[in-house]
């Protein structure tokens, strides 16, 4: 696709959304049989699976911590998830995303409850269209809750950015590629704590604050969708 002349026309984005509009979001909890907890998230064209194993015995044992559980996160993209085939295995980008994902989730866990154990979170991006790390965090939070891991709260995440001089919510691949700025944010909704923040591009101080407003608002909506997914998973079904 060639770069369009304008990414926003008459206040509408290429896919017809308003600047503060989220792509269609679908969250499902408990989608994998073998995992202790799992979740599937679709955000626009993004399709992301997350699975949680544990708390379980930590291997290799020398990585055990005597006083707490270790949280291990692995973010990975399927070779067929992007336009040009991605070589399987970790690259520098996925190593960094795995690290910031772990740091985004860890604040809500009670790791001190499970010394010498590990909690594994596996995030697999099956189809990518910008915003995969935030979709992955949304899925991982639901999967952890589905696994019954004690949590202070869920974690909700979304990307905001700047496109054609306008602050927009939830960028698509085109907006990420040709826009000015991308800022993924993760929030612990009840306490309004920011646990992930990355940014590249250009923001003035005022734009930064405006972008944060947008992210906080959207995370409220994502939070509700996450909770709804968990409610549905554990609802008492009539006649079941």
């Amino acid at each position: 696709m060639e770069k369009p002349e304008k990414l926003i026309v008459d206040g509408k984005r290429l896919d017809g959304r308003a600047p503060d509009e989220l792509r269609p979001l679908k969250i499902e909890a408990g989608v994998l049989k073998r995992a202790d907890g799992s979740a599937y998230v679709e955000l626009g064209a993004n399709k992301v699976l997350a699975a949680v194993y544990g708390p379980r015995e930590m291997h290799p044992r020398h990585e055990q911590q005597p006083d707490i559980a270790v949280l291990r996160c692995r973010y990975a993209m399927a070779p067929f998830s992007v336009e040009e085939r991605k070589r399987p295995g970790p690259d520098r980008r996925s190593v960094e995303i795995s690290k910031v994902t772990r740091e985004a989730i860890e604040p809500v866990l009670f790791l001190e409850l499970y010394p010498r154990s590990v909690i594994d979170v596996f995030i697999e991006v099956l189809q990518a269209d910008a915003g995969t790390r935030t979709a992955g965090i949304n899925a991982a939070a639901v999967a952890l809750a589905d696994a019954g891991v004690p949590m202070r709260d869920l974690v909700s995440a979304v990307a905001v950015g700047k496109v054609d001089g306008t602050i927009v919510l939830d960028l698509t691949k085109e907006e990420d590629q040709w826009g000015t700025t991308d800022m993924p944010v993760a929030i612990v909704p009840r306490k309004k704590m920011i646990t992930l923040l990355q940014m590249d591009g250009h923001f003035t101080g005022a734009e930064f604050k405006q972008a944060l407003d947008l992210a906080f608002n959207a995370c409220e909506r994502i939070y509700e969708a996450q909770r709804q997914a968990l409610r549905e998973r554990y609802a008492i079904k009539q006649g079941g």
């Binding site: 910031v100 612990v188 646990t195 923040l197 940014m199 590249d200 591009g201 003035t204 101080g205 930064f208």
Partner: peptide, 13 residues
């Protein structure tokens, strides 16, 4: 103006 940001560590802001 800001050109890059990165939060690190297991706490929050």
């Amino acid at each position: 103006s800001i050109c890059a940001m990165q939060k690190g560590g297991t706490g929050y802001f």
